[in-house]
């Protein structure tokens, strides 16, 4: 069953159109990677799945329901969570409060259990729970952003460049957690990455975006071996 289906999506900002008819599909249980150069429109795609910027044309379906015209909060309440570009943690709130914000859409009785799960994935967050989130390091902020998204028990997790700016060791850690939540918690993952090598190795399938369009798609390993992709995104880029 497909969790997410995007058909002919057009979206943009003011007079600029950033997406010119994008088609993407993510099936239950998959990890799907989206790669592409700077400014290709990857973040715009993730954000407009969540209704901001709004689709100007086309259709977005989540779990079989048309969500194209729903307001953002109504979309995420249906079981979708995003760790957006730039992390966007709430800087003046504590780590714990940020995680509470992630749980606004869920039942209170799950809270302790979900919190425990996030603290198990990222023990450093437990230590820092009372610290103001704006004072965390970049890597810790990334963990917090993912942890916050997980607190909503999402069916589909959208991750925008989770490895950006992190040291290699942390990158590996972030990716292994993504695999773990996919395998153990059965969360479907759609992730945008600059780090094409890691992303395509992790993902079941991948899409390549250029200038607001999907130009290539296929199995993760298959894309890894593709000559054009090696040239454009992988050479020297590990």
């Amino acid at each position: 069953m497909s969790v997410l289906r995007v058909e002919n999506l057009h979206a943009g900002y003011g007079h600029i159109e950033a997406l010119h008819g994008v088609d993407v599909e993510v099936a239950e249980g998959e990890i799907v990677a989206l790669i592409g150069a700077n400014g290709a429109g990857k973040s715009t795609l993730l954000m407009s799945i969540c209704g901001n910027p709004r689709a100007r044309q086309g259709r977005i379906e989540f779990l079989g329901e048309d969500i194209t015209r729903l307001p953002t909060h109504a979309i995420v309440r249906r079981g979708l969570a995003q760790s957006p570009e730039g992390r966007r943690i709430f800087p003046f709130m504590t780590v714990l409060e940020n995680l509470q914000m992630g749980a606004v859409t869920t039942q209170v009785q799950h809270f302790d259990e979900d919190l425990e799960r996030v603290f198990t994935l990222y023990p450093i967050l437990r230590e820092r729970r009372q610290q103001r989130a704006g004072t965390l390091s970049g890597g810790e902020q990334q963990m917090l952003a993912i942890g916050r998204a997980l607190m909503s028990r999402p069916r589909l997790l959208l991750l925008d460049e989770p490895s950006l700016g992190l040291a290699p060791l942390l990158v590996r850690q972030i990716f292994s957690v993504i695999r773990e939540i996919n395998e153990r918690d059965r969360v479907t993952v759609f992730l945008v990455e600059q780090n094409a090598y890691h992303a395509l190795r992790l993902a079941h399938r991948g899409y390549v975006m250029a200038n607001g369009k999907i130009v290539l798609s296929g199995e993760g390993r298959e894309l890894l071996e593709n000559e054009e992709i090696r040239k454009a995104y992988l050479e020297g880029g590990r």
Binding site: C50, N52, P71, T72, H73, V76, R77, A81, Q82, P84, R88, F90, P91, F92, M93, M101, G102, V104, T105, R148, S152
Partner: peptide, 13 residues
């Protein structure tokens, strides 16, 4: 702190 992010965690802004 971040109106867009608040909507993104499910708050009815």
């Amino acid at each position: 702190q971040d109106l867009g992010m608040a909507a993104l965690v499910g708050i009815d802004v």
